[in-house]
Write a protein that binds this DNA or RNA. Structure first.
Length: 422
DNA sequence: TCTGGGGTCCTAGGACCC
DNA sequence: TCTGGGGTCCTAGGACCC
């Protein structure tokens, strides 16, 4: 028997992070933009009230409206660091904290008679120590805790405890919840469910799991059982390794120049390899993707190619050779590419890999291992891309546009916040 | 002019084996 | 004339999440 579970969710997380170090943003409509200052990906309550939708392209916001609001470039280094601080406070209160995304974490409270006062204390503690406001939902299953969290956001206390499935308030609440608001039900599934007359969370919770399994999938059957109060979803091991590692970016402007594209690819390969070594894994294959803008009609084009390596590797040089090979195969003259990415695949732990008859026997491998760890140390100390394999020009079209980024004041000495005494 | 970047899991279907 | 069947592995693609 497992559960209950609490879901701790940071309110308007990216905006809240910005506000911690820029008090002038309190009470002001604030939006955070995606990479290249493309779309709005996070909004303050004030901005939501002005009707600015999630995902709307920044250039489509009316100029009159734009003058009334503040748009910031995203500052992932800051958000990542603030996220780690919130987790640290949670771990000081509870065992069983499982990060779920940059702004959410579960607490597995199996065997723990938790009280609402305790959760309130956690909430206040996070606010005081990090400056970040959070909402907490508590329920017997994760799917119900997700729902409870929605209610917590509306509650003035910021904490909501789901009534037990035996409580008459439970079905009433599920009846009031449209099925598309259930965790795991996206647009497509909601449409198919509605076609079958399943319109609310309650209807889904009372549907026959076997029938759901046959008509849809095992995941939907489990979601239904979770709504009815039976915990089915195990959490991914929080520290588990990724199965694939991707680095991709839109270019700040489309290009057909092979030199420029190859530099972007080199940059992504360097970054993916760094992430790979950080989690202590090797890769057996490199996938390269290159595509045009999605918004140019029939001329759009998406190419991808997978290059298998001779043996599992952590070596940026080897990945770059593969990426170059992929580029030769994919590149088409005259196509204006908008985005490219490098994915490392078939990952395995360095300590669990099968030995190859041919791999890792030459002196070259050990020499490169040493070189790679020096590279990583240098980049940790002097900032990303301080040292890269292969030439990467700092001013090409692949460089991120982020004209309104706040300072990375919690992770960079040279960007510390300044306080002026008046 | 300008439209994000990661991930996960599941399923269907083909290839291949015996 | 008659033309198996079950299992596994792999891949592509769909759907979802934040």
């Amino acid at each position: 028997m497992s559960g209950p579970f609490a879901l701790v969710d940071c309110n308007n997380f990216y905006v809240s992070c910005e506000r911690v170090f820029a008090p002038r943003l309190h009470g002001v409509p604030v939006g955070i933009l995606s990479n290249n200052d493309g779309c709005v990906i996070a909004r303050s309550e004030e901005l939501k009230r002005l009707g600015v939708a999630m995902g709307v392209p920044a250039h489509l916001i009316a100029p009159a409206l734009k003058r009334k609001i503040v748009l910031c470039s995203s500052n992932y280094e800051l958000y990542g660091d603030m996220s780690a601080r919130v987790l640290e406070v949670m771990r000081a209160h509870y065992k069983g904290v499982e990060p779920y995304s940059i702004d959410e974490a579960w607490i597995d409270l199996t065997g723990h008679a938790v009280t609402i006062d305790e959760l309130n204390a956690l909430r206040q503690s996070i606010r005081r120590l990090t400056g970040i406001p959070v909402s907490i939902g508590l329920a017997p299953t994760r799917t119900l805790a997700k729902l409870a969290n929605r209610y917590a956001k509306r509650a003035s206390s910021g904490v909501y405890v789901m009534p037990a499935p035996s409580d008459p308030a439970h079905p009433a609440l599920l009846r009031a919840t449209p099925v598309d608001q259930v965790w795991g039900i996206g647009t497509r599934l909601a449409l198919r469910l509605k076609a079958q007359g399943i319109l609310t969370a309650h209807a889904l919770s009372t549907a026959d799991p076997h029938a759901l399994r046959r008509a849809f999938s095992v995941v939907l059957a489990r979601t239904a059982m979770e709504l009815a109060g039976t915990a089915c979803f195990e959490m991914n091991d929080a520290d588990s390794d990724k199965h694939a590692l991707m680095t991709s970016r839109s270019l700040s402007r489309a290009t057909q120049c092979p030199t420029a594209l190859m530099q972007a690819i080199r940059q992504h390969t360097n970054r993916s390899a760094e992430k790979l070594r950080q989690q202590g894994s090797t890769a057996r294959a490199v996938m390269l993707t290159m595509s045009t803008s999605k918004h140019i009609g029939p001329a759009r084009h998406h190419g991808r190619v997978v290059i298998e390596l001779e043996h599992p590797s952590q070596d940026t040089f080897m990945f770059l050779r593969a990426a170059r090979q992929g580029f030769e195969a994919l590149y088409r003259k005259g196509v204006r590419y908008q985005k490219c990415g490098v994915m490392l695949m078939d990952l395995a732990r360095t300590d669990q890999q099968q030995l190859s008859l041919l791999g890792n026997v030459s002196g070259e491998a050990t020499l490169n291992d040493a070189l790679m760890s020096t590279l990583d140390r240098a980049n940790r100390r002097f900032g990303q891309r301080a040292l890269t394999v292969g030439f990467i020009d700092g001013a090409g079209p692949w460089q991120l546009k982020c004209d309104h980024r706040s300072s990375r004041c919690t992770t960079r000495w040279d960007e510390l916040a300044r306080v002026r005494r008046t």
